[in-house]
Design a binder for these strands. Structure first.
Lengths: 101, 101
DNA sequence: TAAATATATCATGATTTGATGATATGTCAA
DNA sequence: TTGACATATCATCAAATCATGATATATTTA
């Protein structure tokens, strides 16, 4: 595959997505959804800790960036991964971590 | 490969690196160094445009994050990619772009 | 040494981000 | 309808980021 220069608009989108992932707590959310599958907000809160309002805002940013999906079920809202690209990045990190880099 | 929960300190490092890549101009720098190989600052400036001071500061951030290397040769400073992880992310984006996602 | 080129740094202000605590909204069950 | 639970939003403030223009440093050449 020959790499061509990425279009400006696309680069803007992607840099936005990377910036959203550039936060330890949000990365932790993505990791959790990947390892344990979809989960409601209160479960994420119980496992990851922190303030409820903060979690909600982080989830909102991930949703706006298209990294996760949200679906209300009764009084819960279930979150799940929506962007394969985010997973690719996460797995890239896992590999580096495994190599001790 | 079984994915284990990433250590906190590592997650902090990685989120920092992602945040550094989360800027269109800096992504453009990384892309340029990948496509055309190492280059001195003034060449990057000529091709990418913008203010010289801004370029210098973006290069500094990329260097601090370990994404690029710098080496002085005479009055020039040559920059080159230093982080395979950054390339993996870039290639991941190229693939998505190619798929029109 | 002086000028020219290449790069780095600094000061400033505007904008964004992040954390916190409080409050509002939505949903279900008693 | 009231209360409990789950989630979202708001207000505020501190800190980080970003763009800009000016200035400083380093290196080579005249």
């Amino acid at each position: 595959m020959k790499a061509r220069i990425l279009p400006h608009e696309f680069l803007e989108q992607m840099s936005g997505a990377l910036r959203v992932l550039g936060h330890a707590y949000r990365l932790r959310i993505v990791e959790h959804l990947d390892l344990r599958g979809p989960a409601p907000g209160h479960q994420l809160l119980a496992e990851l800790g922190g303030a409820q309002g903060a979690l909600s805002q982080h989830l909102a940013r991930l949703r706006q960036a298209g990294v996760i999906q949200a679906e209300r079920r009764g009084k819960e809202v279930w979150y799940s991964l929506a962007a394969p690209a985010a997973l690719t990045i996460l797995n890239c990190m896992r590999k580096r971590q495994g190599e001790g880099k």
